[in-house]
Design a binder for these strands. Structure first.
Lengths: 158, 158
DNA sequence: TACGATAGTCAACGTGGTTGACGAAATAGT
DNA sequence: ACTATTTCGTCAACCACGTTGACTATCGTA
C-alpha cells in the first residue's frame, strides 16, 4: 500500500465533505428564511422531499427515510403543526392516514429545489462547471448511494 | 444567470456530499470496531481530536467545537465513562478540571488517523490521486472552513 | 479587601431516534 | 362466514445531544 501524503492527511476528507454539505444547507436555509420559510429545518426539507407530490403514510415515509414509523410519525406531527403537511383519512383503508403536502409545503419544496440549483450554479461559476460535474461523479463512484437516510442526528450522536 | 442543467439538479450535490461523509465515517467506525473500539461513536472521534495530546478543559473544548461548555461537559462525561478521557484537578487553578486522553484514547485517535489515511488511499486508487486532491481543493475553495462544529445533531435536527 | 470575571455543574427543557405494547382494521385461510 | 395473522398508527418510556439559566467556588484585579 502506498504511503500517505503527510500534507494531505486522510482525516481532512470527511471534514471537507461535511463542510461542503453544511455550507450548502446553511445557505439554503438562509435563503429559504428570506423567502418566507424561516421555520423549515434541514431535516424538514428532506422529509418533505420524501413525502413527495403524491403523499404517503407514516410507515412508508419511515421506510423511505430509513427510520422507524414512530419517528416518521413525530416528524409528520411537526410538519403538520407548522403548516407544511396535512393528514387525512384514507377512505379505502381506515387504518391508514394519508399525508400530503399543503400549498405551503409545495411552495417550500419548490423554492428549495430552485435555491439548490442556484447554489450549484454558484459553485460552477467559482470552480468551473466541469469540476462540479466531476465532484458529483466521483462521489457517486465512491459513495454509491441512491437514497437518503434521515437518521443523521441519531446516527452521528449515537 | 445560466439555466440549470435538468440532468444535474442542484439538490443532488448536498446529498452526494453527505453520502461521501457518511461512507467515510461508517467505514472508519466499522474498522475501529474491528480493532477493538466498538464503543466509539462518530461524535467521540471528533471530540477526542479536539481534546488533543495536550488536554483541555470543558470550556475550551466547547469553544473549539462550537458548542456550549455544558454540552462539552456532557461529552466529556461520556468519554470518561467509556475510558477514553481522564479528568484531573489543575494544581494551579482549583476551578479548572484538566481533561486528558487515556492510553486507550490515544490508541483510538491514532488508529482513527491511520484508518482515515487508508480510506483516502482507497479513494485515490479508485478515482485517481489527482481527483481526490482536486476534490479536496475544490471543497476548500467553496466551503472554506478551517474548523469543525460538533453541533451536528442539533444543527440538523433543530 | 471587595468586586467582577471565569470554570464547572445542576436542572429544566426541546428535538430526534429507539424499542415495546396496544387497539383497530384489513387480509388470508380454513 | 368465522377465526387467525398481518399491518397501520399511536402511546409510553427511554436514551443521546443540544440549549439556556442559575448557582457555587475560585481567580485576578482595582
Amino acid at each position: 500500500m502506498a504511503i500517505a501524503d503527510p500534507s494531505r492527511p486522510g482525516y481532512q476528507l470527511p471534514l471537507l465533505l461535511l463542510a461542503g454539505f453544511r455550507t450548502l444547507i446553511d445557505d439554503l436555509h438562509a435563503e429559504l428564511a428570506r423567502q418566507g420559510h424561516p421555520e423549515l429545518r434541514p431535516l424538514h426539507g428532506f422529509a418533505l422531499q420524501a413525502v413527495g407530490a403524491d403523499g404517503t403514510t407514516a410507515t412508508e415515509l419511515g421506510q423511505r427515510l430509513g427510520i422507524s414509523k414512530q419517528a416518521a410519525g413525530k416528524t409528520i406531527d411537526r410538519l403538520v403543526a407548522i403548516g407544511y403537511l396535512d393528514r387525512a383519512n384514507d377512505p379505502r383503508d381506515a387504518r391508514r392516514r394519508l399525508v400530503t403536502m399543503t400549498p405551503r409545503g409545495v411552495d417550500g419544496l419548490r423554492r428549495s429545489a430552485e435555491i439548490f440549483d442556484q447554489l450549484r450554479e454558484r459553485w460552477a461559476e467559482t470552480l468551473g462547471p466541469e469540476r462540479v460535474d466531476a465532484l458529483e461523479d466521483d462521489l457517486r463512484t465512491v459513495a454509491a448511494t441512491n437514497w437518503f437516510r434521515l437518521d443523521v442526528p441519531g446516527w452521528f450522536g449515537g
